Amino acid sequence: MHEMALAEGVRSIVDNAARAHRIRGLEAVVLEIGQLSCVDPEALRFALGLALRGSAAERARIEIESIPGEGWCLACDRNVPLASRADACPSCGSHRIQPLRGTEMRVRELLLQKNRQ
């Protein structure tokens, strides 16, 4: 389950931010996950529940925003929507598609608790 390794990476980001900015508690951790990233959002949410124990984000809400897939068809020279890396071009049927968007997984935002001390 590579989601656990990803969750540990998020934990490292949270720990570094908490240390650098003297953060005691976070209200939310906002993630962006591309539809083509091969990340299972629910498996990641479960792994984060374990990985964030004892961190500034232990009680934080986990928000996961999905980034739609998009690619460039090499055959017909068009940008096309992709739900999967295995999809064919909806215009010409070619499978020669270069992903442009939807492969990312990033921490977009760490929201501080409102009653921060």
Rank of each mutant, 00 (worst) to 15 (best):
M1E: 10
H2N: 08
H2Q: 02
E3I: 09
M4G: 03
E8I: 15
E8N: 09
G9F: 03
G9K: 06
G9C: 01
V10C: 06
V10E: 01
R11F: 12
S12D: 15
V14Q: 05
V14S: 07
V14A: 01
D15P: 06
A18D: 07
A18V: 10
R19V: 15
A20C: 04
A20S: 14
A20E: 14
H21F: 15
R22M: 03
R24A: 04
R24T: 10
E27F: 07
E27M: 01
V30F: 04
L31F: 12
L31K: 05
G34D: 06
Q35M: 05
Q35C: 10
C38H: 14
C38K: 13
D40M: 08
P41Q: 00
P41R: 10
E42S: 11
L44Q: 10
F46S: 12
L48K: 03
G49I: 14
R53P: 03
S55H: 04
A56S: 06
A56Q: 02
E58W: 11
I62R: 02
I62G: 03
I64E: 01
E65T: 12
I67P: 09
P68T: 04
P68M: 07
E70R: 11
E70S: 09
E70F: 00
W72F: 15
C73P: 06
L74T: 12
A75T: 15
A75S: 15
A75Q: 14
A75G: 08
D77V: 06
R78N: 10
L82V: 00
A86E: 13
D87N: 05
D87M: 05
A88M: 03
A88Y: 00
A88F: 00
P90F: 00
P90M: 03
P90L: 04
C92S: 08
H95T: 13
I97N: 02
P99Y: 01
L100C: 03
L100F: 03
E104R: 07
M105F: 14
M105Y: 09
R106G: 08
R106Q: 15
V107A: 11
E109Q: 14
E109A: 13
L110P: 07
L110R: 04
L112I: 12
L112E: 11
Q113R: 11
Q113N: 09
K114H: 11
N115T: 12
R116E: 15
Q117E: 14
